[in-house]
Design a protein around this nucleic acid. Structure first.
Lengths: 237, 237
DNA sequence: ATAATAAACGTAAAAAATACATTTATTATA
DNA sequence: TATAATAAATGTATTTTTTACGTTTATTAT
């Protein structure tokens, strides 16, 4: 509290960068993927990297992340949450730089493929990621761990699926996140008992002759449940 | 990704501060308390404030928080976790300043009372806090919400108690955090079934004639449980 | 010896999680 | 047009966990 003058260091004579880095998840036909790109600036130019940016004067961390997401995917209104900061003194060999990681869940069929290409970005399966620059691999590991936890208590899995989806699709999403097979009878029972989903008359026949009914996430019901303090627990089996 | 030159702004010509602010919880005879102090620098000098500091060149966010905690309480090895960043452009009228909040759980009988006094710090009951400067009240609200969630899945409540504690004390801690009375029979059953506590032969007679047995948190057992993927769920009643 | 006080304890009922197998709707093809 | 193939949809019995609830016990002060 006392020696504030010591901190004059940060008053402009030295360089301190603050950035955001986005861990962008997508779910593509049963596979959890991550959007990464080829870094365009030194140091480590050409290395695989998360998508990030320095925070600009006129924006906060959230704003910076939204801007980056928009620039790279063309999407607004993405589900996004701050994860944590990475501030090791020498995490970046180029400069003292603190990074705030954010994870984002996007509906993979909605992003702008042209933009992604233009930006040199690619989707990699999460369990087949290349080495990333700096501490970005650690960011991904942390994000995955957090996602696994979060998804058990909050219905955010839907953010990775189209507006309507089948129960088998939803189940395969959880199986992918948890890296674990689930029993379809118990899964359906549990998920439907939460009274969050609305069954539609339409069927998706892309993966079976019989076709599977499409469901929609019912935000109103969800909000009602939240008010009463609600746990979105997942099954053990 | 492109217009990186726009970010030259942060290369030293303008001022950007990065700080940590600590939400320090203590548990004092059934009451959850927070350590706050009188701000010593402009702007808002004299206002009640969380305890914080700018991050110094040679330390990361975690290091800064540990340093602050040490300065103010005299304690090392405090349970501490980063919460989130507060980066609104005009959150601080004095300068552009991003703050990383950390919450800390301390054993309230262990802190250095002399130091705390010297630093102008005081303990307030969480439900009777004064208005704090900047967005510090929001930080406290966020920290409390997080604590409520966290404490249901991780055995961190112990960090707020002495090394040995009675079950009634532990129960009252959870009751205070959840703002909710719990049934002592169910509480004991649940907490003991987790096989995390070690009963000692000693009794604490400070609050009853009969006295209550003292227990200790068994870290080894806890670690064993963690490996097998374990949920520290709390009761509904 | 008695009263007062908080600690400790057990059990029955209800709810939730788990394990497990068959039927159904549809399309392709024989 | 009957049959085979395929994934979707469904039910139930068992086990585990959670919940509700009242009495006994150890100790101190009177």
């Amino acid at each position: 509290m006392k020696n504030l003058e010591k901190n004059k260091w940060y008053s402009g004579r030295e360089k301190l960068f603050v950035a955001v880095d986005c861990v962008i998840f997508g779910f593509d036909k049963g596979v959890l993927k991550l959007l990464v790109f080829k870094r365009e600036v030194e140091p480590l130019k050409g290395g695989w990297s998360l998508i990030g940016s320095f925070i600009r004067p006129e924006e906060d961390a959230d704003g910076a992340a939204k801007r980056v997401l928009k620039e790279i995917t063309g999407l607004d209104h993405i589900y996004m949450e701050e994860l944590k900061t990475y501030s090791h003194v020498d995490r970046d060999p180029g400069a003292r730089c603190i990074s705030i990681s954010q994870y984002a869940l996007i509906k993979i069929e909605e992003y702008n493929k042209e933009l992604v290409k233009q930006n040199g970005a690619f989707w990699f399966a999460v369990d087949n990621l290349p080495d990333l620059v700096l501490d970005h691999n650690k960011m991904v590991i942390d994000a995955l761990e957090y996602l696994q936890h979060k998804v058990q208590f909050f219905p955010i899995g839907f953010e990775l699926l189209s507006n309507s989806f089948t129960l088998p699709q939803l189940q395969s999403l959880y199986e992918e996140i948890f890296q674990k097979k689930l029993d379809s009878r118990n899964f359906r029972k549990k998920i439907l008992s939460l009274d969050l989903l609305e069954k539609t008359a339409a069927k998706d026949k892309s993966s079976s002759k019989k076709g599977a009914y499409l469901y929609k996430f019912d935000l109103k019901k969800y909000n009602r449940l939240q008010e009463n303090g609600f746990n979105f627990l997942m099954l053990k089996k």
